[in-house]
Each structure stands twice: as C-alpha cells, then as structure tokens.
Computed example of a mutant assay.
Amino acid sequence: MSTDPSLLGARALWEGLARVPVSFPPTGGAEVVVSPESGLCPAGWVGVVSLGGWAIVTAPTEHTAAIVREGLARLPVAAVADPAVVREALPGARTLGPAALAYVSREGFRPVEPGALSTGHVPSGHPELLRLEESAGDEDAGEAALGDITSPAFVVREHGRVVAAAGYETWPGRTAHVCVLTAPAARGRGLARVTGSAAVTHALTTGLLPQWRATRAASRRVASSLGFTELGYQLSVEIE
C-alpha cells in the first residue's frame, strides 16, 4: 500500500466516515459493509469511495449489500465509481456524482498571489456570503457549500461587494474540506484560484489536510492549478 501521506490521510478520513469498521483492501477490490449511518452518501443510499486503486462501499442494509457485492464483484476497482458502469451492473440504480477527490501537501501546494485585487476575510455565515450565494443560484451555492465552512471566508471584493469567496469545513481526521464560490458575472478571471489559495494556505498553516471535492471540470482545473492531485472518486448509488 502506498505510503503517500495525503493518500493515507484521505483513506483514514473516508474509513472513519463509513462509521463502521472497514478498510481499503490492500490486495485490491472493493470492500462492501453495512452501515445505515454512513457518511459516504445520503441516508438510505450506497456510498462508494475509490482512492488510489482501492475502494470501500457502504450499504444501508444487508439485503442491499448482497445486491451490491454480487453486482460489483466482476468489476475492476477502476470502474466502481463510474456511474455508467455501475448502473449497468446494478440495473435500475440511480447515481449522484462522481465527485473527484483531490488533496495537496504543503510541499505540493502552488499558492496564488492576489495582485491588485481587493481581498480580505469575513466570518463564516456573514451576510456578504449569503448575498454571494443568492447571486450564484441554488445549484452553484449548493455545490460550493459555503454555508458549511468553519474557517473564515477569504474574499475578493469589487465595487464594495464580495464577488468570490473560499473557506473550509473542518472534517474528521484533521481534514479541511475546501469550499469555493464565484459570482457568475466574475467567473473566468482566476478569482477562485485567489480565494482558494488563501483558504488552502490557512488550512496548511493549521496542520490540516486540504481536500477538494468537485464534480465540475472548471472546479477541478482550479484545484489542479493549486497543486492538488486527484486520488480518487466518490459516488452515491440509490437502489430501488
């Protein structure tokens, strides 16, 4: 098994979020366990997390676990987080994701300077963040989840208004789950890189492992530009 600290930290995080004893199988394949309270997926769903060529899967009931074990047994680990392949293996299943899971170390981080931009920070839950979420719309605001951050929010202002913000939610295992949002009219100018860089700098300074979870290509590109490496995927599966 790899000794990469980021990969080891990511695996420990998701093993803990399974909320039952489980581990990424060192010999390959996917380990399927029953966990009604799993943090890998919405309640009642099947959660799949694949990291570095190994996977863990949680199911809400033993009946569902048996269906999943049979359906996924013939799949290579690289395919267990592929929604099209999973739906073919589990007919009638509905999927959410996958979300790419990326991590960065202090050594691999590539910070971005704000330059002439007007930057600052505000507390989580600040009214300016709420206005930014309203301007972005429910779908984008839900993806960013700025309302969940436990760190300060690092912001860019233009004409007195916050047009981009980033922070992180402290997860178990000393993980910083990074959240970034830019107003629609201000996108494509690198503001997510500036605010995301500030949030990641804060997380690394406090000894946390930054995690960037994204379903959209633009967000994944921002993470890559900051030095994040994609180590795997998270997928949620609903079985009728």
Rank of each mutant, 00 (worst) to 15 (best):
V200G: 10
A136D: 06
S236A: 15
P76D: 09
A218G: 07
V122T: 06
P60Y: 05
T27S: 10
P152K: 06
H126P: 08
W171Q: 14
R110S: 08
E107P: 02
A93P: 05
A136V: 03
T182I: 07
V194S: 11
W45Y: 08
L13E: 00
R220C: 12
L101F: 05
S197L: 11
P83I: 11
R19D: 02
H177K: 00
D82P: 04
P60G: 10
E134W: 05
V222F: 14
Y233D: 13
G125H: 11
A79R: 12
V57M: 06
V68C: 14
V32W: 08
V86I: 11
P25I: 02
T205L: 15
V178R: 00
A73E: 09
E107M: 05
A145Y: 12
A89I: 09
V46A: 04
V155P: 15
T95G: 04
A59Q: 12
V20F: 07
A199L: 06
E62W: 13
P114M: 01
V46C: 03
D82Q: 14
A141N: 02
R157T: 10
D82E: 15
E113V: 10
G29A: 03
L96E: 14
E230G: 14
V32N: 01
E70L: 12
Q211T: 05
A12R: 01
E238A: 14
R174E: 13
E88I: 09
P36A: 11
E143H: 15
A164R: 08
P152I: 01
V46M: 08
A153M: 01
W14F: 13
G97W: 14
S50L: 02
A100N: 04
E113K: 13
A81Q: 11
A93E: 00
V85E: 12
V80R: 09
